[in-house]
Design a protein around this nucleic acid. Structure first.
Lengths: 164, 164
DNA sequence: TTAAAGTAGATGCATTTACATGTATGTATG
DNA sequence: CATACATACATGTAAATGCATCTACTTTAA
């Protein structure tokens, strides 16, 4: 994911492929992408470490629980969770398995469409999410907030929005 | 990793935990973090898709090959690659296995220290890296460069640098 | 020296992820 | 209505990852 290689590469591509040249990123763009990869990895692994230290399940669980807490009646269809979390369908299916095994959610029939299911958060699931947030929030503050001014955070959030 | 939950949660934590309160992130900080996660995932999966479409190996291979190309004599010790790429030791060890199986690198003895190894990039490895960069660079441009002004890219790169 | 502790790297095993495909149900078209 | 195609979700299998531990050395220091 790191590609500090833009200098040589861009030049090479300009020389060797200039005829039917595809657009190449500027150094700033490449640095932005590499920075995005590195920053995300660093912070994510720091957060995951905090979770593990606290005896909590992986961060991915939080997203699903959070979406369910947000939803009316604490329930969503799998495909809804999928689009909200960007999880792949097969990964979500198995993540729900694990959550269900731990009693944090349960699957229920969705009568209006025989193909569908409800995923319903349980009280235990709500409690777990709240407990996770305690760790998560202070972890975000430590690994992100502490390193940015208020303005930086605003700007960063707004720039990242553009990458959709 | 999405946690749009700061509204409720920050308030809750202020109410319920204000005595020995750990620092909580501001909404902007949380949004920056969520944005970082989402943007990275989105772009990464778009890039991985481009790689697959081009019949190329996973993006992770690029990093290692790139570091080797950068290095003097095209070789590095595994622990050096590790720190440059942020890969876990055991993951790198197995990634090198795969690269070696494909003839892109080879392991050589490191005489000065019997515990050490050299990882040396082969010609085939150099060629592969160059081929990957063709796809990678245009993919970065498409999924990152195209969505940011020159100024945006500069700012984003610089903000992300602060997260170390 | 030599035992203890540290470092570099590999590896067995369990869990997770990716990919392809399967099963069941729904919708659309002729 | 019958056939074709689409959608929602699950799952078998292979590959990648995480974790703990192992082996082989090196360094430290008694």
């Amino acid at each position: 994911m790191l590609a500090n290689g833009f200098k040589i590469d861009v030049i090479a591509s300009m020389n060797d492929f200039s005829e039917n040249a595809e657009p190449r990123p500027t150094p700033a763009v490449t640095q932005a992408w590499i920075g995005l990869m590195r920053a995300q990895r660093r912070v994510l692994s720091a957060i995951e470490a905090d979770f593990k230290k606290a005896g909590l399940p992986p961060l991915g669980w939080y997203d699903v629980l959070w979406e369910l807490v947000q939803a009316a009646d604490g329930k969503l269809r799998p495909f809804e969770i999928e689009s909200r979390t960007l999880l792949a369908q097969y990964n979500l299916s198995r993540l729900i398995d694990r959550l269900e095994r731990e009693g944090l959610v349960r699957r229920e029939a969705f009568d209006a469409d025989g193909r569908g299911r409800w995923v319903v958060i349980t009280d235990k699931g709500r409690a777990m999410r709240a407990r996770m947030w305690q760790v998560y929030s202070s972890s975000i503050e430590a690994h992100v907030g502490a390193k940015l001014s208020a303005d930086d955070a605003q700007q960063l959030a707004s720039l990242l929005t553009k990458l959709r």
